[in-house]
Amino acid sequence: MKIEISEVANLPSRFGSFKIQSFKEGIKEHLVIFKEPLDDVPLVRIHSECLTGDTIGSLKCDCRDQLEYALKAIEKESGMVIYLRQEGRNIGLLNKVNAYALQDKGFDTIEANHQLGFKADERTYEVVEFILAHFGIARIKLLTNNPLKLDSLKGIEIVERVPVIIEANQFNEHYLKTKKEQMGHLF
């Protein structure tokens, strides 16, 4: 895996003062937002890009709420958010919008992906281990509800799973229920 690594830069934000560094893997450019000093067992959130949620504030998912929760937590405790460019569970923006259209017709998030020829979740996490190794991190406290993330990190010791509890709303209630009941998310 050939990965280009940027310099480290400061990122003052409404959540606190962080450092950022980018990792370019092929055409995908991932971002690490971190608060120093990094502990021996830092708090880590692996967050996949969600343009509609993270940027526009869509209420159909809980992505933005999870990202904000993580940024607030690492501001208090130090740690990092690894922001992966894997839009729509890695099916891309065009297909994500098509999946949204199918959800508007009554399909749940998994059925919509299947209708488009995709698995329920197409994401991969190999680059996460590379990024953590770059920072000299072998043990983490992982901010997640997703069992796939817990199972995917083979070379990293997950000392603790820290749940990310977000309040449901009328637009994402069915989505969250599907994640829990069909994808095994730990709410």
Rank of each mutant, 00 (worst) to 15 (best):
P147F: 09
L31T: 11
E129I: 03
D62M: 05
E4L: 12
D62R: 11
Q182C: 05
E7I: 02
T144K: 11
H134F: 12
T124R: 11
P42G: 07
D39Y: 00
E181Q: 14
T124P: 02
I137C: 07
H30L: 10
A112G: 08
C63M: 06
V41S: 09
I91D: 05
I140R: 02
A99K: 05
L67T: 07
E4C: 05
L186C: 11
F171E: 15
G57Q: 12
L143C: 07
Q182M: 14
L71W: 04
I140V: 15
V41C: 15
V44N: 06
K105G: 01
Q115S: 14
I166K: 08
L132H: 02
K180N: 07
N113K: 02
P163A: 03
L43P: 00
D121T: 09
K119R: 14
R89H: 12
E75N: 14
F15D: 01
F187P: 10
M183K: 14
K96Q: 08
S22N: 03
T144V: 05
S22Q: 06
N113V: 09
G16H: 01
L150W: 04
L43R: 00
V41R: 05
N10M: 02
G184E: 05
A138S: 15
L142P: 05
K154D: 13
A168F: 07
I5K: 04
N98P: 00
F23P: 02
I56G: 08
I82P: 01
V164N: 11
H47C: 11
N113Q: 00
